[in-house]
Design a protein around this nucleic acid. Structure first.
Lengths: 220, 220
DNA sequence: AATCATTTTTAGATTTGCCTAAATTTAGAT
DNA sequence: ATCTAAATTTAGGCAAATCTAAAAATGATT
């Protein structure tokens, strides 16, 4: 567990995001662009990270994260999303405002702090943008038991189940005509109260964040 | 408002603490010792900070903060103590564990974040160590309406008043024989429940954190 | 007032992260 | 198969923050 510099952490993060979940080979130029730096600078850093055994790197061929590098990157992502959740849920920031601050907070070292923060927030699995928060082993929550309030605008989903199975809630969705297997298209999400405008059975209507949070969905 | 590097911030903080409230001239060596660095390194930085007009500095004579430097230092101190309060009160860390983390958190930039954190914590005036938290204008809370629970071990205080003036509380302190103007010596503070062992009128006894929090005192 | 121990500064290097400009490699097009 | 444009690396340098060793200033003491 070597301690990384802030810059090294940012390079790992960049490679992680560009490479995507499948850990594709990443170009030097792509990294330079993402970090607003120059290709020559990136080359220097890649040699350094290879030397630390955090990445695979062949000159002219590109780079990808090795296991240890990926673990580090996911750890930073975890912290980023937990802090964003804190900023929005506890300090009442808008979810567009928090990225910059989370970019700084994600580099705070203590693992103990990260875990206590997670506990304080109620072990959230998704951040305010709806992005999944990996657990401390680096495992992402399954997209399965995602609820409708996590859906992004312009996505199509299928109703898979209900979280709240009280008769009140079941009556309410019955009134809307929602049934298991129904397809719903999310048209827009209101920033103010997180309510959603959806299209369902050729009708458009608005559904509250609370109701949406109790409908399990699968993205299509 | 020039943005300072992390290192520059740490130098200002060091000068602030060594110089004390009276803003005494500070020796190069003292700074070097506090920051675990070498005198030569300090000299370099002092020239730089002088150039930025944050400090007064005469070679061989010593240094002191100018107004702008002092404002910066107090701003960092404010963030440090707010974060410590957060770590102890919200994340349930022990008050000995938090310094290291607060050292990192105090350098997070956003003023808006600092102010919202303060609001979230209920605008605290003292941190978990009992140290005063300057407000956003850099003004420290007056030591006057300090309560006994803020007192440190091995300090002598005088009872100035009560915060809770219910008959229950007044009866309780009457039973202990505490009166206005009494001198109390704080012997020790129990980490677990913040209760205090005090010496009062030649008797030693324990007083709970709650009771202590309702006695206004003046340090002697 | 001269001396000497201590403090401080200067001089010269080192490391990290970054740059520009030139050289090299790669891969697509002829 | 060769050529050329794009991508990438190499070479050489710069600024920040640090170091060691040597030089200079201070001030306390004789």
């Amino acid at each position: 567990m070597t301690k990384l510099s802030l810059t090294e952490e940012n390079y790992l993060k960049a490679i992680y995001f560009i490479g995507g979940t499948s850990n594709q080979l990443v170009n030097t130029n792509a990294i330079a662009e993402r970090l607003n730096t120059k290709a020559a600078t990136v080359t220097d850093m890649l040699r350094k990270l290879k030397q630390k055994d955090l990445i695979e790197y062949q000159p002219y061929k590109g780079t990808r994260l090795k296991l240890e590098g990926k673990v580090k990157a996911i750890g930073i992502l975890r912290k980023h999303r937990l802090w964003e959740t804190f900023l929005v849920e506890k300090l009442a920031f808008g979810w567009e405002e928090v990225h910059e601050m989370a970019e700084q907070l994600e580099h705070i070292q203590s693992t103990e702090l990260t875990e206590r923060l997670s506990a304080f927030l109620g072990f959230p699995e998704f951040d305010p943008h709806g992005d999944p928060i990996p657990n401390k082993e680096g495992v992402f929550p399954r997209r399965d038991n995602v609820t409708l309030d996590r859906a992004k605008p312009d996505t199509a989903v299928m109703v898979q189940g209900v979280k709240d199975s009280s008769t009140e809630f079941l009556n309410y969705i019955a009134k809307l005509g929602i049934q298991l297997g129904d397809h719903i298209a999310v048209k827009s999400v209101e920033e103010f109260d997180r309510s959603l405008v959806v299209e369902h059975k050729n009708q458009q209507y608005r559904i509250s964040a609370l109701a949406a949070a109790n409908l399990y969905i699968k993205e299509l």
